[in-house]
Design a binder for these strands. Structure first.
Lengths: 232, 232
DNA sequence: CAGACTCAGATTGCATACAGAAGCCTATAT
DNA sequence: ATATAGGCTTCTGTATGCAATCTGAGTCTG
């Protein structure tokens, strides 16, 4: 067998290539931004970051470049990187974009979900209900993300999934400090959506997801106007 | 006046900063990929590109990094950059994502468009009709892009606009070699959409755009299945 | 003759070095 | 006292150098 065949069943990642440093730096910097260590508007000095992270400027530069593509920092020519300062308008825009993307994902999920997928959806739903009963705020947020993320996967559209992932991360960054989860209503809506996905009713699943994300958006926007400049 | 004020009316770009080389390299490489000089799957050697473009490896590296973020090349660790090989599935996914994003843009446009905006929309529409009458294929494509692009602008959502821009560029790359414009029907649909935007009927504008993009998607997908592996 | 091993060339990833631009502080003139 | 001009420091942008790694050809062995 000389010819390099791909084995049908085995989805082997190519044996864990040596992860580039830029990736590690990228991850750490996002952690620092999300965690508030690096504050919005702050000037990120390459050399300083390099020393703190124990690498040279090169991987830091490459990480900053990607952070710019993903909307985390702004790169002003000849001035360097500044942590992006999210605005209220931008938060609303991110929410609305995420809403339409997830609505579309629900449509696709209803088309492609298998029996096993449905079972998994109900598991995730149950986990969310459990966290809700236990009043476990962190658990609720995680369960919600897991459920929405799995629905996204079910749409069998990696392009869509990647966009949602990017948008969602930025939304969560902005709302993490102020947002509280929505509560029981959201999970009732989830149940309805799963119901429609289960029977392959794509249009109805889409409509319900549209309603759900819209309600969530409004819910967050109200909190937003209540705390207008929480992170100046 | 010591304090640095931003002037309300003037949307001045900050006086043309020295454009970094990486930007120029990035633009040139996209040209080369779109133009077919660099073919899908081809291994891009940093040093080679650097020599050809008359710069060092550094700007080339940075450009390649951004090209990866935007889906133009794949960067395999320790192996370098390879021009992305688009698949039929991916093309369909890009089309469907672009459709939902533009549908959302139409909704926003209907909410925010001013009288002047409407006038501009009809101008762009007229330009498209003119190109159609003149049987100017290139002109039709450009007019179509201009009209859709302006509708996107009208949604007053830069996040959405940026996503559409990225997705649209990749779609156009894939379809440029095989696609023919749709013809008269598309422009009739445009007219209806503009009508609804003009009167601020967001829901109807959204529905019409949904229909329009869906038809366009189907139209392209048919051409796609007719030329399955045009660019292997 | 097939297959595994070795070694050399090539290429990436990271580090360092250098030049130019931007911002800041100070000194000076009005 | 305020505004301005000039020099200085800092940081980015670009170039180059070096080590590790991957690929492929050639060779050796069963």
């Amino acid at each position: 067998m000389r010819e390099p065949r791909t084995f049908p069943g085995t989805a082997t990642t190519p044996v864990a290539r040596p992860a580039p440093l830029r990736q590690a730096v990228y991850d750490v910097l996002i952690e620092l931004i999300v965690g508030g260590v690096l504050q919005p508007g702050q000037h990120l000095i390459e050399a300083e970051l390099a020393v703190n992270l124990g690498v040279s400027r090169q991987p830091v530069r490459e990480a900053l470049l990607r952070l710019q593509s993903d909307g985390w920092v702004e790169l002003r020519p000849a001035q360097g990187a500044f942590v992006h300062s999210p605005t209220v308008e931008e938060a609303a825009q991110l929410l609305s974009v995420r809403a339409v993307l997830e609505t579309h994902a629900a449509h696709g999920a209803a088309q492609y979900a298998t029996g096993a997928d449905i079972a998994r959806l109900w598991e995730l739903q149950a986990a969310g209900i459990a966290a809700l009963s236990a009043d476990d705020a962190r658990g609720i947020v995680e369960a919600n993300a897991a459920l929405h993320g799995f629905i996204t996967e079910l749409a069998r559209n990696p392009i869509l999934a990647e966009l949602i992932r990017q948008v969602d991360r930025r939304v969560r960054w902005y709302y993490m400090p102020i947002a509280r989860p929505r509560g029981k209503d959201a999970w009732n809506e989830h149940a309805e959506i799963i119901d429609r996905i289960a029977v392959g009713d794509a249009d109805r699943a889409e409509a319900l997801m549209h309603q759900h994300t819209r309600t969530t958006t409004d819910f967050y926007c109200r909190q937003l106007s209540a705390v207008p400049r929480a992170r100046a």
